[in-house]
Amino acid sequence: MPEAIKQTSAEPMILMEGVHKWYGQFHVLKDINLSVQQGERIVLCGPSGSGKSTAIRCLNRLEEHQQGRIIIDGTELTHDLKHIEAVRREVGMVFQHFNLFPHLTVLQNCTLAPMWVRKMPKREAEEVAMHYLERVRIPEQAHKYPGQLSGGQQQRVAIARALCMKPKIMLFDEPTSALDPEMVKEVLDTMVGLAEDGMTMLCVTHEMGFARTVANRVIFLDKGEIVEENEPEAFFTNPQNERTQLFLSQIIH
């Protein structure tokens, strides 16, 4: 772990301590320990079924962990709905399949949560929404429906929608896996821009170029365990573990 960051800031934004999760009898997450400081950008990778998606979905309790502690910005995730909703307000999430609301326009997608959760007046919510839509460079699509946009545009709207809640942490669950190759770049560019502004980010992705340019740390998961954790340069050029090496040899041609 990079020493510099560990020393500068006291309380981590994300803290996972001995987290375990089971699907029925299947042990998906085994003793996950992770601490993320404010402004850190983490990339999670690993073979399919390694539990990386499950791990980040536990962070806003789309999945429930059964053992260990998860503390987000000082709030522990428990059965208490109040805590869960408080955490979800501060954590934005972007999904592999966008999950935009098809019955609402792009603008309505972006203003829904600010109005109903943050109690923001409509006019203000729309101003915020337009601000972020400009930031992801599609303000002209504001009055269209998600179904009328390309995959890359939809994913950028999804990012803007999450940003409209002004989250402290952004989670990305394979944001480019469902996109056609020519659209991957526009989404990655948006994410790089976000990283440059100092957003705390956790990203499940296989885009190694993105990991190299943006991440502070790359974490490799396999069979529900953290196998290796390192700075991107070291991770890619000099993997310490044979599982990591095997994985990298399969995804980098």
Binding site: N60, L62, L81, E85, R88, R89, V91, G92, M93, F95, H97, N99, L100, F101, L112, A113, W116, V117, A158, R161, A162, M165
Partner: peptide, 15 residues
């Protein structure tokens, strides 16, 4: 209605 819709709404903090 896709389950992803529920997840997206919940992750935005909607009760």
């Amino acid at each position: 209605v896709n389950h992803g819709q529920t997840e997206a709404a919940r992750s935005l903090g909607l009760p």
